Each structure stands twice: as C-alpha cells, then as structure tokens.
Simulated scan of single mutants.
Amino acid sequence: MTTTSDSPTDGRVFRPAVLDLGDALLRPWGRGLDVPGGVVPALVAASTDPDIARWNPLDSADPAAAEAYLDRCDAHWADGTMAAFAVTDAACGILLGNAFLRWNNQADGIAMVGYWLLAAARGRGLATRAATAVTRWAVETADARRIELFHAVGNDRSCRVAERAGFPYEGTLRASWRFDGRDYQDEHLHARLASDPDPDLG
C-alpha cells in the first residue's frame, strides 16, 4: 500500500550540498567542515572583523561559542530548517565568508538569505554570486517560492549586493532589528520570486 503526505512542507527542507562557484566553494557549516587552521579559530577570527561585527554580529567570539554555532548548524541541517554555507577558496580551502538561508515561513515557501565576507574576499562580486547561487539552489531543491533579503539602511554595500543579485527593493521596515545590542534600526527589504529571472552576472 502506498501512502502520500499532504504536508505543506513536503520537499521544503534544506539538505547538505556543496555549491561550486569556480573560484570558491560553498560548503556546509558544521563540525565536519575542514578549513586551514581549523574551523573554530576561523570563526573566532571572523567575529573580530569590524564590518562583520557592525552589520552581521557573529556569536562566535570565543571557542566555546564557535563550537556551539557549529552544533546549531549541524542540527539545522539535520531538520532542514536552515542552510548555512561556509564560502571557501576553491584552491586552498581558506575561509572567505558565509552565505545562509532559513525559512521565514516553511509551509508557504518563504525563505530569507544572508551573507558576509571577510575583508580579503570583498570587491570581486563574491557576495553577489554566493547569494545568487544559494537562492537558485533553494528554488530548485527546496521549493522556495519567495526569498527575502534584509539589511540595515546604512549598509550600502549589502544594498548593492541585493540589487546585483536580482533582489528588487520592496520597502523600508522601521525599527525592525537590533544590530549588536544597539537601538532598533530601520532595514531595507529586498526579495526575489522563484519565477524571477536570474541576474546577468557576466
């Protein structure tokens, strides 16, 4: 006897994958991730980057916090609710940044995307390519129908990434998020639909 499920979240799960950007690989964060010098020291170091600390504060300021983050990543990969990718150099494997997705409304197919890059990896379009790649992957493998992107109004660099990655500006969310414990700040909302064409990154 064959049974079927009518759950609205059937198929809307994130499963571990490696995404190849040519010069960089997007690899699942977790205890099994191998980067030169060790994944825990790499995460601790990333948390001290001034731009990351300002716009994307990391809960990895010490080894115990970094290990807890990796455990959470493994748990989210296991239940399919979040996909956190380490952006690594394809040739030497060093950590370059992060790209992630999580469900805002899994039943309705609404996810959000985020990213950060270390200073040495900025300025070559990598954040745009990573955001585009994980968005395409979410649409093709997890049935995401709408992917949202939020950034602080003052984060002009992230706004440019959103526009280049094909996420049109949809509005300003007032006093919507606290960055690193500061007062609530306004955010821009950008979004892409599964039916939107991929951006031309040529």
Rank of each mutant, 00 (worst) to 15 (best):
T2L: 14
D6W: 10
D6S: 14
D6I: 11
D6A: 14
S7D: 15
S7W: 12
P8E: 06
T9Q: 11
D10V: 15
R12S: 04
F14S: 04
R15I: 04
L21R: 00
G22F: 04
G22M: 07
A24D: 08
W29S: 07
W29I: 08
R31G: 12
R31F: 08
G32R: 14
G32V: 05
V35G: 02
V35M: 01
P36T: 00
G38E: 05
V39I: 15
V40N: 04
P41F: 05
P41C: 08
P41Y: 01
L43A: 04
L43N: 02
V44L: 04
A46Q: 07
A46T: 03
A46C: 05
S47D: 03
D49N: 11
D49C: 09
P50K: 05
D51I: 05
D51M: 14
A53H: 08
R54V: 10
W55N: 11
P57R: 08
D62S: 08
D62G: 06
P63A: 07
P63W: 06
A64V: 13
A65N: 09
A65I: 00
Y69E: 14
L70R: 05
D71W: 02
A75D: 08
A78E: 11
A78I: 00
A78V: 03
A83R: 02
V87E: 00
T88P: 00
D89E: 07
A91S: 14
G93I: 00
L95F: 02
G97D: 02
N98R: 11
N98L: 09
A99W: 01
F100N: 15
L101V: 03
R102I: 06
N105Q: 12
A107Y: 04
A107S: 13
D108R: 14
D108E: 14
M112S: 15
V113A: 12
G114E: 01
Y115H: 15
A119E: 15
R122V: 01
L126S: 05
A127Y: 02
T128I: 02
R129L: 01
R129T: 00
R129H: 01
V134Y: 00
V134E: 07
T135D: 08
T135H: 09
T135K: 03
R136E: 14
A138W: 05
E140M: 08
E140K: 05
T141W: 06
T141Q: 13
R145T: 15
R145K: 12
R145Q: 14
R146S: 07
R146I: 07
E148Y: 11
E148H: 09
N155A: 06
N155M: 08
C159W: 13
R160K: 11
E163N: 06
E163Q: 12
G166Q: 01
G166E: 02
F167V: 00
F167Y: 15
Y169Q: 07
Y169L: 13
Y169R: 15
E170P: 09
T172H: 07
T172M: 13
R174A: 11
R174E: 10
A175D: 10
S176K: 10
S176W: 12
W177Q: 13
R178C: 13
R178H: 11
F179W: 13
F179G: 09
D183L: 11
D186N: 10
E187S: 15
E187R: 14
H190Y: 14
H190A: 08
A191M: 05
A191W: 05
A191S: 12
A191G: 03
R192N: 07
L193G: 09
L193P: 02
L193T: 01
A194D: 12
S195R: 08
S195A: 15
P197L: 02
P199N: 03
